[in-house]
Amino acid sequence: MTKKETTLKDWINVTVILQILICLAVAIPIAVPIGLPVPITEYTRNVYNIVESIEPGSVVLFTNEVSAGGWGEMASPTTAVMQHLFKRPVKIVFVEFFEDSPILTEMALDKIDKGDKVYGVDYVHLGFVPGYGTAVAMFAKSVWTAFPVDYHGTPLEELPLMADIEDASDFEIQIEAQTVPAVGPVDMLQHIHSPYEVPFVVIATAVAAPGHMAYVESGDISGITIGVKGGAEYEILIKRLGAGAATMDAMSISHLLLIIVLIVGNIIYFTKRRGP
């Protein structure tokens, strides 16, 4: 049996053309930025206002449950909100309940301007604790049991910021960045927000955001930013453009391409159906 040679003609079909088109729709605006406008949505502005109105001197709990795979989308909103927190006169405690997240938090911390904030006094990175929902409940009940040492191995006794923190009620507000279904807002609402009445803000991936909207409507989630677009909007609000703003041209053009392909596909479908 002879092996059939693959010719160029075999390769070029609708599937390949569409796949090349989606690559071009993303790649060209990245190589040659157009600067399409990015309007600010109410969701993002609300989160900005919440962060802006946190009482000076309060301690903010920042939980990160972003997976390494989702960091491409979540780097922008997570970093932007973190940057905003560092500009405000508040103290921040970073915690992770998902395995991928501690290094991502460190990557974001490396990128942002920390101003005059001092580690251990103004902010602390406690790191990761396993067990998902169980770990959240454990942390909420006793921060010191969940973390005898911080991410860098420093005992909590040596971190002045941790002296007044015993349980979740010592946090003024919680901000959560999340992509993974294993642990997320539902666990935080169950074990931190509801029993300790800590206001809760979510930096959500676009795919998870629709699932959180029932909690936004009920008031359990005080604010939500959605996906990389929310990140780009937040970067504009804090006047520090970054990864989110750089993706917006590509996001606009690729979305429009998909909508056009969807409409063309349906026109062809109806034409074929009505044909002989």
Partner: peptide, 15 residues
């Protein structure tokens, strides 16, 4: 919204 996530990740790889 799922499309938005996939395109955001796709874009981040192209960047």
């Amino acid at each position: 919204n799922t499309v938005a996530v996939r395109l955001a990740l796709f874009t981040s790889r192209w960047i």
